[in-house]
Design a protein around this nucleic acid. Structure first.
Lengths: 224, 224
DNA sequence: CAGAAATCGATAGCAATACTATCATTGTAA
DNA sequence: TTACAATGATAGTATTGCTATCGATTTCTG
């Protein structure tokens, strides 16, 4: 089977759809490499252009600015993750098992998914850990939100919230608990690797421990 | 009583101690105003200088760059908050009551504390909600961490972790739970106001609800 | 009180960043 | 074959981030 995954992205995210051309796909691919390598702060369209062998102006034909590009790849990631969750929890009846599966998908550095050509999901996962919240922690959140740029993130959160409700229909904070485990899957990972004293996993730096923590957290809330 | 609070800040945070001069204090004061007004992205030393009637070079005598200035005011905030926690939980025996107090201190927009002259804690609280995580979500975390720039944050986290352990000595994730409630006190607030569908408080936008959520979360974990 | 040092204001300048505009070229579809 | 979309090439501008220098003034010190 050689299936290509494709997510139809919100058109406000780009000026010209990067999935529709070779250059566009290269932009995405090398953005991920460069942002992963040097961080979003140091990332510029000029460096990206040189890296791909095109020009700065060429990149600007696809994306308004580097922030939009970050929002684009984040949105792509959340879409991909929602798909993973839907796929991996399909046909599972027990919502508790579903929720455990979700936590693992959130917390583990994924292996590169072959069905998506030019995107390295494992690098993307690490980018989202470090840069993900910068997509919405801006003065323009509300505007961007009106343009539905964060829809994939919100959809994933809603999906997880619903699984929580399946586990316990009268739980009062399904959405907040969902956004908490999404964010904490990433933050605890970041802390573990860079500010270990903020976690209890500093010694072994093992993602399994994060999963254990999140499971304990979620099921304590649900069962209390 | 007219007591002035003063926190001795890590010397790596600045080039010249801003607490020691009129200009320095103005820099802090107006940084807070400007970052609150336009966000950290749009904040520049040039604008700050114009705003307080000095020159760009004048600001650079105090702070290496705007990121360091942000780390400075964040460190100041965490020191102030740790002091608040210590003060407000002093003489309380019951760790459960202590922990509830902590959650309120984390989640509520504080009133301006008169004992600190040039710092408006309420603005600062809102800045930390939006910009706080940008202090460490950089390529330089580890370096900055070595310079102990995040010590106040880590101290607060350790303090809260210890209260959690007082509540339940065998709880396995005191530090991770502590960092979770710190971060979530802020993120849920941000989500509530800007991406409400990620929370369960979108309708009333009431900070009390965040407190209720966090209390439910923490004590579920501790008591399960 | 004199001299030294610190502080600040003023100005200049530079390299990098963020972005826009124009025009020629090439490949492709009507 | 014409038309047009996509790219490459080049230029240019305003802003940002940062460093350097030079007096003038204030403050400290002996």
């Amino acid at each position: 089977m050689d299936i290509q995954l494709h997510f139809k992205m919100n058109e406000k995210l780009f000026l010209k759809d990067p999935e529709q051309s070779e250059l566009g796909r290269k932009i995405i691919q090398h953005s991920i490499l460069l942002i992963h390598q040097n961080g979003f702060e140091a990332f510029t369209f000029k460096k990206l252009a040189e890296h791909i062998g095109t020009t700065e102006a060429g990149i600007y034909r696809y994306f308004e600015n580097k922030h939009r590009l970050l929002v684009y790849i984040a949105a792509w990631y959340w879409s991909w993750l929602e798909y993973q969750v839907a796929f991996q929890t399909h046909n599972i009846q027990d919502p508790v098992i579903k929720l455990k599966k979700v936590i693992k998908l959130l917390a583990f550095s994924v292996e590169d998914d072959l069905s998506t050509h030019h995107v390295d999901e494992s690098l993307l996962h690490q980018i989202i850990i470090t840069e993900g919240s910068k997509t919405y922690l801006t003065r323009r959140v509300s505007e961007d939100n009106k343009d539905r740029l964060f829809k994939p993130y919100k959809d994933l959160c809603a999906m997880i919230g619903n699984i929580i409700l399946e586990c316990r229909p009268d739980y009062r904070y399904p959405k907040s608990l969902a956004s908490t485990i999404i964010e904490m899957a990433h933050f605890q990972n970041f802390f573990m690797n860079h500010l270990p004293s903020l976690t209890d996993f500093g010694n072994d730096k093992n993602e399994l421990k994060i999963v254990a923590f999140l499971e304990d957290l979620v099921f304590s809330c649900i069962r209390s």
